[in-house]
Design a protein around this nucleic acid. Sequence first.
DNA 1: CATTATGATAATTTAATATTATGATAAATC
DNA 2: GATTTATCATAATATTAAATTATCATAATG
Lengths: 290, 290
Amino acid sequence: MINPVFLRTFMNLVKTNHFTHTAEELSMTQPGVSQHIKKLEIQLGTTLLNRYGKKFELTTAGESLFQYGLKQFKAESDLLNTIASDDVNIGHCTLACSGSMAMQLYPKLLNLQKERSGLTVSVEAAPNTTIIELIKKNQSDFGIVTQQVNDPSLIQEPLGEDALCLVMPAQSEPTWEVLLELGFINHPDGHHYATQLLEKNFSGEFKGMDQLPQTGYINQLSQILLPVSMGLGFTVIPKSSLDVFPYPDRIRNAVLASLVNERVFLITKKHRALPSRYQLIRELLRSEWH
Amino acid sequence: MINPVFLRTFMNLVKTNHFTHTAEELSMTQPGVSQHIKKLEIQLGTTLLNRYGKKFELTTAGESLFQYGLKQFKAESDLLNTIASDDVNIGHCTLACSGSMAMQLYPKLLNLQKERSGLTVSVEAAPNTTIIELIKKNQSDFGIVTQQVNDPSLIQEPLGEDALCLVMPAQSEPTWEVLLELGFINHPDGHHYATQLLEKNFSGEFKGMDQLPQTGYINQLSQILLPVSMGLGFTVIPKSSLDVFPYPDRIRNAVLASLVNERVFLITKKHRALPSRYQLIRELLRSEWH
DNA sequence: CATTATGATAATTTAATATTATGATAAATC
DNA sequence: GATTTATCATAATATTAAATTATCATAATG
């Protein structure tokens, strides 16, 4: 590691081209300057100055060190600026949520970015379990999940509810026999969603997801309704995902006797103070479900 | 300035999430770790860790410092790599020369770059006086000038000779009267060149450049022959510049009684050891005049 | 040739940092 | 819920690094 005090001396020496003047500017003694340079040279294993008489030129290594020093100084002042300012409108925000949630939220987050040019938002689409991991590893600060989590290191704030929808090809009837025949188009949270909805509405017949043939799997919710619209199977997704499908008349949102609402939670890490800019995102999320 | 020892401790602490383990890895005592973090916090004026019980999370400032540290480590290993290797094929070379020289040399330098992909060459076109300044300020390592310089801080190596040419519109005759009538198209080294050539060939008439009307000025030698070809004046340039003019039949390279050769010198700074890659450029320059 | 300016070296003082020992508090175990 | 263990914080001491003072050597200056 390069001693920053030595480096500062070196940088000043390059600037002034003069040992004594450097010593004066840095309020130290001239032998100190010589010593600093010498120690840098010993550490780096090369000469930094090409001495001739009482003058000198930088060697190639000296030139490199000088460039490094310039970079250094800049990086440090950047750091201090960053730490000093916790502006609501500046910085990067990270959010992890399901794919459908991402499709729903991303345009609104982009609007926020447009209004506040210093703000950047990245959205990571992932299944519930991954979202929780991302939060715990600090790779994302905000997470939106549809499952209650019971982890003492996380904070959970209910945002609202989202109805689960049984989605079938346009002409199909929502009977147990038809479902068995169609088969299930799975997705990362597919079993979790389907189990809840089918248990309530087909309590006599439904024993578990293993009963149903899986006729497809896709981990992008934006595309999951495609195989359904083509008659290849049914699936269960939240209403918010359904709303963004571009061809609503090619599918059927089956009306069932019992509605199942999936609760939506905002999760954050306990003991992790988030920058104030996250307040904006939190408000946006709350208003989304109001 | 951020103490790099403290920073290293902090970085390791973030990695391990554990004070004692960090102390073990860095072969120091645990209180030492606490002390380092505390000192960083005092210096930066913020908490870096959000402590709860015996665990902790990074604060925003802590996150920033961590990012800074990562950048830092990279910059330092880059520096050490740069210093360790003085590869003939890697690095940047700077050359300052006249505009015509630049036109002549640049394609050949580009070929060199093509052959050795780690090498970059930048050419600065400038008049003689500027070239010398650039060299003295270390803004360029190689300079090519056509004037003998008498500066003890510079080294001068003769490269070869370049004949000065009196260039006129295609139909003009090289007589003193015609020259007076045409007028002089000037360029940065125009007076210097013209004086030498005219003194020798029109020793009776020529008294100084003030005698001749200046009918144009352009500091790009690549374009200087344009006004000459249009009959707007005459000029004096080195043969190398003449050779790159695309329409040789629109101008006249006047045959004079006495030839004047301009000596071409490579100048470098004394006491400045140049990286080995410059040897390549030097050889290329020598072979150019063989 | 003498003088002044400048950088290098050696010995000493001063300041910063590390360690040891100890204390306090939370998590784990019975 | 009391006891043990693990972990971080603090205070006093020891160690190490860096700064200064004094001195020397050599180059630039007149």
